[in-house]
Nucleic acid binder design. Structure first.
Lengths: 329, 329
DNA sequence: TATATCAGTTTGATCGATCAAACCCCCAGA
DNA sequence: TCTGGGGGTTTGATCGATCAAACTGATATA
């Protein structure tokens, strides 16, 4: 098997200097067209690829984005699709994704700190933002490039680039869908108050009902399990609800055991399998946007410091209502 | 913010040479205890961390393991739990996980080839092995360290370290469970013949029935969807089956709409949500074993070549039957 | 006394790329 | 003829770690 070719090998083969090869690859505009062609042919012939470690040593940039891989919670998890999109989009921009695990903000910060010393990722993608998120302020204080998938839920954490899915718009659409189906008393099965995501999703439901002057009192909280979803649904139906908007597919699954007019959230494989109408998050797109916001920051910096204040242009994407008929609970 | 400390900074601080610092970190046994303490204190004081790029340049080892992140299929996917386990186990052994995507064997090989030139991962973890797998032979031919999660399904691909879950043992246990419940005519809802995984799972079911001298003819193939699972279940029940062993939770979900005596495979969140008895794969353990087999290969090599034939000690792990009552289809 | 051995430590070279600066050649303008 | 640009290319230094070899004392052996 051929030994891996270095830039010096390519230079020798093409009868130019190392630097010229480097220029062909990094700033082609300064090289004469004829030379450029010759060097590219040499690169091709030798199967040359830049050595990331050597480049990183000199430039200080690793072309690595780091992100945490989530533990699967009790619920039904959808994160792998985001991660897949992230890996794909990153590759398109010449970046690779490096994984790490963590169990809370503190251990995540410690891991990030360690990673910075060792692999020097160029940027971070944080998921699962929450009230009082310690990670964002830590990163921001150090001027490190990052994006969050999930909006900043507190004023203290604001001011960084983020991408999120507009849960309220989703549940509003879901509620309208049920209204169009003739339902007048529509309930909401949610999570405990205080979770930003859950509150957001509930607000869309109540907004749609309020716009029609209908009762917005039919909401209950759960811990997110299917079992509690069922209990809550029973109570809401007892109170007169004929349809239910749910904060997740997991609780929707429970609600389905009580009434068929249910809309879930996340459009998980479960929803597809049993024919449950649900709100699909544009995860691939969200991932692509994250990469975009991050690479924007990265290209706009020379050496260690940003050359200008990063254009923090948050993005709120709309989920899609995936309508399915004939749910079989 | 403090500039990152280099090994030279630590050396100066501790009044020793660079090499001694390196020795303290990499071969502590050659350093006098007193010096070692002094150096460690300096490391601590300066917050020093080895620079992975510089180390890689010299040693040729990146401490990176690469693996593909799968696209979520139509079915219900369980891969993220494996990936999480992999990341965690790798970290414990001082490795990080690098992701890439690919749509088929050919593009995966191309990506691996590219990765080898750029980031030089020390090893690869392949998932989703299949008949005529082009990836394993490609890697083996080049003497690159890798493990597969999934056994080699053809003789041609054999001879490398792998970890897999014993599907047959799982379905056999599931069938016995149903036999113990008094069932005598037990059907199997499977995938199309030729998929190694599916055939393996069917074999456990028929083995258990054959051991009791019972009918092993009640098997049907599906494309793996819930809809087809339901159709197959109806046909099997019509032929007299009173219970069904299923090749996946997805088809089990369909079967549940026909009869409650059903066992699924994978113990996905869906199964937990609706109370379906299912076979759980020990994914965290599988991931840990993969890392183990890989790091064994890696520590047993000097420079580029293995010092001895890698001890190919495949591992077949048993799934666990998670018994749930009262499934609500 | 000279030599070998050994634990512990230091020095110089090196991995492969890029930066910064020097260099070469040709042509325009004085 | 000399000077002054540029376009295009080359040279030397450098990033931070580790390898290989050399060095330093001190003790053991002949």
């Amino acid at each position: 098997m051929a030994e891996k070719a270095t830039i010096a090998d390519v230079a020798r083969y093409a009868n130019v200097s190392r630097q010229t090869v480097s220029n062909v690859l990094n700033s082609p505009e300064v090289v004469k067209e004829e030379t450029r062609q010759r060097v590219l042919a040499a690169v091709e012939a030798l199967g040359y690829r830049v050595n990331a470690a050597a480049r990183q040593m000199r430039t200080g940039r690793s072309r690595l984005l780091a992100t945490r891989i989530e533990t699967t919670q009790d619920g039904i998890n959808v994160y792998d699709r985001f991660l897949h999109g992230l890996t794909e989009s990153a590759a398109r921009s010449g970046y690779r994704v490096l994984l790490y695990t963590a169990i809370d903000d503190r251990s995540e910060i410690a891991t990030i700190d360690q990673l910075l010393g060792e692999f020097e990722p160029d940027g971070f993608v944080l998921t699962g933002t929450h009230h009082g998120d310690a990670r964002t302020s830590w990163l921001a204080r150090r001027g490190l490039p990052f994006v969050t998938f999930g909006r900043p839920w507190g004023a203290a954490e604001a001011g960084h680039p983020w991408v999120d899915v507009d849960g309220a718009a989703g549940t509003e659409a879901a509620t309208r869908h049920l209204l169009a189906g003739g339902h007048r008393r529509i309930g909401f099965v949610g999570w405990e108050t205080g979770s930003g995501v859950g509150d957001d999703r509930r607000s869309g439901w109540s907004r749609a009902l309020a716009a029609e002057g209908l009762d917005t009192g039919l909401a209950l909280e759960t811990d997110g399990t299917t079992a509690q979803g069922r209990v809550a649904a029973q109570e809401l139906v007892r109170r007169g609800a004929t349809a239910l908007v749910c904060v997740s597919d997991a609780v929707a699954l429970g609600a389905l055991q009580v009434t068929p007019a249910v809309v879930g959230f996340d459009d998980t494989p479960v929803a597809a399998a049993i024919g449950l109408t649900s709100l699909g998050q544009p995860l691939a797109e969200a991932a692509a946007r994250c990469v975009e916001l991050l690479t924007d920051q990265l290209s706009g910096r020379i050496g260690d410091r940003p050359t200008e204040a990063p254009a923090s242009s948050p993005l709120l994407l709309s989920p899609t209502l995936v309508i399915r008929k004939d749910p079989r609970p």
